[in-house]
């Protein structure tokens, strides 16, 4: 299997891909990426926590107009994963308002977003609709 690298440090690959956040040990505020101090309470101790891999779409837009080289349309969304808001695109769904709705249930999904000359794959993440009955 080709070597894989995640698009961002907070995406953990493997059998059960998931996101991690840095959680303030004092107030519980969560941050993606590196954090030196807490913007909520001002303290500087964090622990790493897993973010729920299912969530609800709190907001979305369907971007139809973008810089050259960016494929459109795509759906950018804000997903509430058990109280932690995550920014991601919605994937594996038709990018139109008939198929994307506020409050829809989604789950984390990964996808290959690029491959270099050695075959190493860059893995990104998005959220896809949870199939009925799943």
């Amino acid at each position: 299997m080709a070597e894989q690298v995640p698009l961002v440090d907070y995406l953990v690959l493997g059998d059960a891909p998931h996101l991690t956040a840095h959680e303030c040990t004092t107030c519980g505020a969560r941050y993606f990426d590196r954090r030196n101090g807490c913007a909520s309470c001002g303290t500087d101790e964090f622990t790493t926590v897993d973010v729920a891999t299912t969530g609800e779409v709190r907001a979305f837009t369907i971007v139809a107009f973008a810089a050259p080289g960016v494929r459109v349309p795509y759906v950018a969304a804000m997903v509430d994963c058990g109280g932690t808001s995550v920014r991601a695109n919605l994937i594996n769904v038709e990018p139109d308002p008939e198929h994307v709705t506020l409050g829809m249930a989604v789950r984390l999904a990964t996808e290959v977003i690029g491959t270099d000359e050695r075959g190493t794959e860059a893995i990104g993440f998005g959220f896809e609709p949870v199939p009925a009955g799943a």
Binding site: R58, A59, T61, M78, P97, L102
Partner: peptide, 22 residues
């Protein structure tokens, strides 16, 4: 930028209802 403000309006709609494209 258009996408950010689109989501800001959509988030209000999710919270309180009643919004639409129209």
């Amino acid at each position: 930028m258009p996408g950010v403000f689109a989501q800001i309006g959509m988030e209000y709609g999710h919270r309180y209802g009643g919004t639409s494209f129209e």
